[in-house]
Design a protein around this nucleic acid. Structure first.
Length: 594
RNA sequence: GGCCCCGUAGCUCAGUGGAUAGAGCAACAGCCUUCUAAGCUGUGGGUCGAACGUUCGAAUCGUUCCGGGGUCACCA
């Protein structure tokens, strides 16, 4: 049992022994003791004073003494200040934890169960390459999947690829008109970038044509509709829907290029999916449920034949589900896909990693599913995250300020290479090892940077700050790990030969580190409960920080006694295990040296 | 305009009912014959957007206001 839970139970028991069962549930808060006070954990008992009709020092002292009496092996002492009871653990209580867990690489993880959840993330369009915003989405999704798995869930990582629609038709028509048969192979351009270039080309030509029409006296709105290239794109979409062979094969070819590009990016950043849905397969699925809803009078038809749902009763407005011509809209498709997911897997929860600009859309989706009678409606969870902005403001594709995913990853890896070369600590490594190290560090920096912030909040991406590998960063934590590995390589004792003496004493930093390491299982549980990887980033940083203080203050290999050396080795092994485990949950790997 | 989110140190962010509000970066002063200095130690830096309220206790909860953002498409 975690220390904090143990204390809660012990306090409850002590209070009952002291004052009997009051019949009320007592609200007891337990927090780590602030560094300026003496103690390890603090019981905050202000709220009990009124119920038990006691004075603070009276209640605090009685409770403290009872705890010492009942658990002499656990509590060594206490002090009372106002409504705070500060408790100090015995050395043996610390040792009990360390002994049982220091060598356990899976410390904090819960055993696997059959409870299954799906995490949908990435979900790109196929008309342009991934950008920085996608990276936040992807790292978040990947990390949440890992965190849920560590908490005992079976996790299905999924993605819905928006592979059809007017957007890809724009790239297609531009390619047809201007590429002259060029391919990613012939131009040596990565497939997704190649297709994205034609999307940009489309827009350039489109703007020119609008300008021409307006110059010729046409109204701007009219011009936007009349521009020939736009008409051609729309014509292509129509042909696609009719199954026109030529259009379909062009579509398949260009999407194929994009997938090759995406796959190489996914591979480099180390993410994958268990199940990929394609919009071209699923976009018609929602219609039957809309039809059924119409028959059951949950939905209604307007005179023009369009189908709507009225959400006024839950403070939302009317929402279109089928156009007058019977074609489906985005929402219709999402209903279909939501059902499909539950047909494919026995899901307890269906998590969607989607930007917060779609909060309203997801709220409506959930509400419609509920009205249509789907039992899973309440288990749809929108893991929303804020936009990534630049120090200069928002990313805007029209202004060319979009940070490309491949570019930024490459830049981080290059930074890692430059920095490593400057420091010159890994001489003697092979080319292959160095290349691997740069990837580990560059991606570690990138992922940590994007995951260290609360997902719900929008964040600012500062290129200067992102390539700083000091302080609250991935490389800082990785460095701490590498330092420990270095100690362990030089140690005469192997981790499994460590023995911690029963009455070994803990100095301040040893004690603090032990207490912090012990809370890891709770951090793991909290991050799953809150759907928030940044809790792990914050934790892993504080562990690394504290270990570095300990490392500077106390020598492990030249400890003053063999008893001390064993203790410090155990602390080092335990720290390394937790750093590795926690970083893994953020998708970050660790180097043996750096 | 309706609804939702945000406002904490120069900058980027922690802290959602408890003690004198924290960290990183930036600034300044120190620490490498000692297990990796991508590190450590210290200093300066805040009317927690504003006001009122609830509470023994408020950055945290409530109301109002100010400032910033999102969204409310027969777009995806």
């Amino acid at each position: 049992m975690a220390y904090i839970d143990f204390i809660r139970t012990a306090v409850q028991e002590s209070l009952e022994k002291l004052y009997g069962n009051t019949g009320e549930t007592l609200d007891i808060q337990i927090t780590p003791t602030k560094p300026e006070f003496e103690g390890d954990y603090t019981v905050v008992f202000f709220s009990l004073l009124k119920v038990l009709k006691k004075r603070p020092d009276e209640l605090g002292n009685q409770l403290g003494e009872k705890l010492l009496e009942l658990y002499p092996d656990t509590f060594a002492g206490f002090n009372v200040i106002k409504g705070f009871l500060n408790l100090t653990f015995t050395h043996n209580a610390l040792t009990a934890f360390l002994k049982n867990n220091y060598g356990n690489e899976g410390f904090g993880r819960k055993p696997e169960t059959d409870r299954t959840v799906m995490v949908e993330y990435a979900s790109p369009n196929t008309n342009k390459p991934l950008h920085l915003g996608h990276l936040r989405n992807i790292f978040l999704g990947w990390s949440m999947a890992e965190i849920l798995e560590a908490n005992g869930f079976k996790v299905v990582k999924s993605s819905i690829i928006n592979d059809r629609g007017i957007h890809i038709c724009k790239s297609m028509i531009a390619w047809k008109l201007f590429a002259g048969g060029a391919t990613p192979e012939s131009t040596e351009i990565k497939g997704d970038h190649f297709v994205g270039d034609y999307y940009v080309k489309f827009n350039d030509v489109y703007q020119e044509q609008i300008a021409e029409l307006v110059a010729g006296g046409m109204d701007k709105k009219q011009a936007e509709k009349e521009a020939p290239i736009m008409k051609e794109a729309q014509d292509m979409l129509l042909k696609w829907e009719q199954g026109d062979e030529e259009v379909r094969s062009l579509w398949a070819m260009m999407n194929g290029w994009v997938y090759e590009g995406f796959d190489s990016t996914y591979k480099r950043i180390g993410v994958d999916f268990d199940k990929v849905y394609y919009e071209s397969d699923t976009y018609l699925l929602g219609k039957e449920y809309v039809q059924k809803g119409l028959e059951e009078n949950i939905l209604f038809k307007k005179p023009d034949g369009s189908v709507w749902i009225d959400l006024a009763d839950v403070n939302l407005d009317e929402k279109l589900l089928l156009r007058g011509d019977g074609t489906s809209v985005y929402m219709t498709q999402d209903i279909g896909l939501a059902v499909e997911k539950y047909k494919d897997y026995p899901l307890e929860k269906s998590i969607y990693v989607i930007g917060d600009e779609q909060l309203y859309h997801m709220k409506v989706l959930k509400e419609i599913c509920r009205k249509l009678g789907f039992s899973f409606a309440d288990e749809i969870f929108h893991l929303s995250y804020g936009m990534v902005e630049l120090t200069t403001g928002k990313m805007k594709s029209r202004e060319g300020t979009v940070v490309d995913a491949d570019d930024i990853v490459e830049e981080m890896v290059q930074t890692a290479a430059t920095l490593t070369a400057e420091l010159g600590k890994v001489e003697g490594s092979t080319e292959e090892e160095l290349k691997q190290l740069y990837e580990t560090l560059g991606l570690g920096a990138m992922k940590f940077y994007l995951l260290r912030v609360d997902p719900k909040k929008r964040m600012v991406f500062d290129p200067k700050e992102s390539i700083d590998f000091h302080g609250f960063t991935g490389p800082f934590v990785q460095y701490t790990y590498a330092r420990i590995r270095s100690i362990l390589r030089k140690s005469a004792l192997r981790p499994e030969e460590i023995t911690i003496g029963q009455d070994v004493e803990y100095e301040k930093l040893e004690r603090e580190l032990t207490l912090l390491l012990e809370t890891y299982p709770n951090v793991l549980a909290d991050s799953a409960r809150d759907m928030n990887p940044s809790l792990i980033a914050g934790y892993v940083f504080s562990v690394a920080q504290l270990f570095n203080s300990f490392y500077t203050e106390h020598s492990v290999l030249k400890a003053e006694s063999s008893e001390k050396q064993n203790l410090r080795l155990a602390l080092s092994v335990c720290t390394a295990n937790i750093l590795k485990s926690a970083l893994h949950l953020l998708g970050i790997s660790v180097p043996d040296r750096m």
